[in-house]
């Protein structure tokens, strides 16, 4: 792959975001179901942390596939814009979240200077994404009002979710692509 963004790679990047978006359209229903199930215990926001890894997956996946600066951010932002036009319920807010999550994942790769697209990079993006999205939710979703034990549970659940879906799952997919020699 060349160093600049070619038309083909831009289309591919968008398609990857869309694929993640379509597969996770099901998680929208899953989210509502989990959220409803947790409501009587007052734990509904936990659904967000539990499934967050699925929503941010496009970014690390694009990072592992393209291995170049900007790919995670672009994948997440383009994915958010496409989702907005598909008629997602969150509208413009999707784009704000997309920008925030894109930056979060990008920072993980920046920390490894775009040299580690292995387990180290995976852990770096997991940490950066967990911390930054948690700070954003601290303000936006009112996490600052919750009891401390709930916050700790939410943080750990979020970390595990991002590690499993955003990290391990996207790394497995990238490994399969590498084994079949379609990416380097």
């Amino acid at each position: 792959m060349k160093n600049t963004w070619s038309l083909r790679n831009i289309i591919l990047l968008t398609l990857i975001s869309i694929i993640c978006g379509i597969i996770f359209f099901a998680t929208g229903f899953l989210y509502n179901a989990v959220s409803l199930a947790l409501t009587p215990y007052g734990l509904a926001p936990l659904a967000n942390d539990l499934l967050l890894g699925l929503w941010i997956m496009a970014a690390p996946l694009a990072g592992f596939i393209f291995k170049r600066p900007g790919a995670p951010f672009l994948a997440e932002v383009i994915g958010a814009i496409v989702e907005m036009f598909l008629g997602g319920q969150w509208g413009v807010e999707t784009v704000v979240t997309g920008i925030e999550q894109g930056i979060a994942t990008e920072l993980g790769f920046v920390a490894t200077k775009y040299k580690h697209f292995d387990w180290l990079g995976l852990i770096a993006t997991t940490i950066s994404t967990t911390v930054i999205t948690f700070i954003y939710d601290w303000f936006k979703n009112g996490y600052n009002a919750y009891a401390i034990h709930l916050l700790i549970i939410m943080f750990i659940v979020r970390f595990i979710s991002i590690f499993i879906f955003g990290g391990v799952l996207s790394k497995l997919i990238a490994n399969m692509l590498e084994k079949s020699h379609v990416i380097k």
Binding site: T39, Y41, L43, A44, Q89, V92, K140, G142, A145, L150
Partner: peptide
């Protein structure tokens, strides 16, 4: 409803109302 009850049980009741209005502002604005 989820956020409202979460705040009511594990957080701040007033804050729950704020979050619900914020949620609806987001959705209609979007």
């Amino acid at each position: 409803i989820g956020i409202y009850f979460a705040q009511k049980i594990n957080g701040n009741y007033q804050y729950g109302i704020l979050l619900v209005t914020r949620l609806y502002a987001f959705v209609t604005l979007g």
